[in-house]
């Protein structure tokens, strides 16, 4: 098992409230890991700690690719995140957003690649519209475009089908299936349809 995510004795407390304690789990390559729990159980916080956006109270999360533990900067290049509180630049068009995220990741940008990815997420023909003019479902699709742009081996999804219609939900199914074939999916959800994808589950009380 050369590629995996190792969560070691992870704990998170806010003031006097403990969200979770001593969570240890290994998420292997080509698998889907699902975090379950009621509202406020700490699902989003758990994902944010994995992404490195929020510090853990104790414990650590290691990303191991080809046997090497990644540094914080390397982790950033290997993760794609879709989350309800992640927003894209509304004053820029979809293509301009993708151009920016390519540039800031140090990747070459091509209009062809942008068109392909926008077509894949169902935004064909809307690439030059400002993201602020999109509906909430279209914004969610755009978040997938941004998260998949650098073809990350690890995809982290918080409420993956939020705001999506039936076609959008089918798109997410496709994305999860494809990602599972080549990497890792970690997602927080309570939707029975999405929970079924999980090879492993963690239930936060």
């Amino acid at each position: 098992m050369q590629n995996y995510v190792a969560v070691k004795k992870l704990s998170k407390e806010y003031s006097c409230r403990r969200l979770f304690a001593d969570v240890s789990i290994t998420i292997p390559d080509r698998s889907v890991f699902v975090v379950l729990g009621h509202n406020g159980a700490g699902k989003t916080t758990f994902l944010r700690i994995i992404c490195g956006l929020v510090p853990a109270t104790s414990g650590q999360v290691d990303f191991v690719l080809c046997g090497n533990v990644l540094t914080a900067a390397e982790k950033r290049a290997k993760v794609g995140l879709v989350s309800p509180d992640l927003e894209l630049y509304g004053e820029l068009s979809a293509v301009e957003n993708l151009e920016f995220f390519s540039g800031v990741r140090g990747l070459p940008f091509s209009l062809q690649r942008a068109r392909e990815i926008l077509e894949f997420v169902g935004l064909k023909g809307r690439g030059h519209d400002y993201v602020a003019t999109y509906s909430s479902g279209m914004k969610q699709r755009m978040k997938y475009a941004q998260a998949l742009l650098h073809e990350p081996p690890i995809l982290i999804l918080d409420e993956p089908t939020a705001n999506l219609d039936e076609v959008g939900v089918a798109l997410v199914d496709t994305i999860i299936r494809r990602q599972k074939e080549k990497g890792i999916v970690i997602m927080a959800t309570n939707e029975p349809r999405e929970v079924c994808y999980g090879d492993q589950q963690l239930s936060l009380a």
Binding site: R76, L81, D85, L86, E87, G90, Q146
Partner: peptide, 16 residues
């Protein structure tokens, strides 16, 4: 305020 900071943090190193 616009919530774009999360996407920026996920994509960019601090120095740039």
């Amino acid at each position: 305020e616009s919530g774009t900071v999360i996407a920026l943090k996920m994509a960019a190193e601090p120095e740039p």
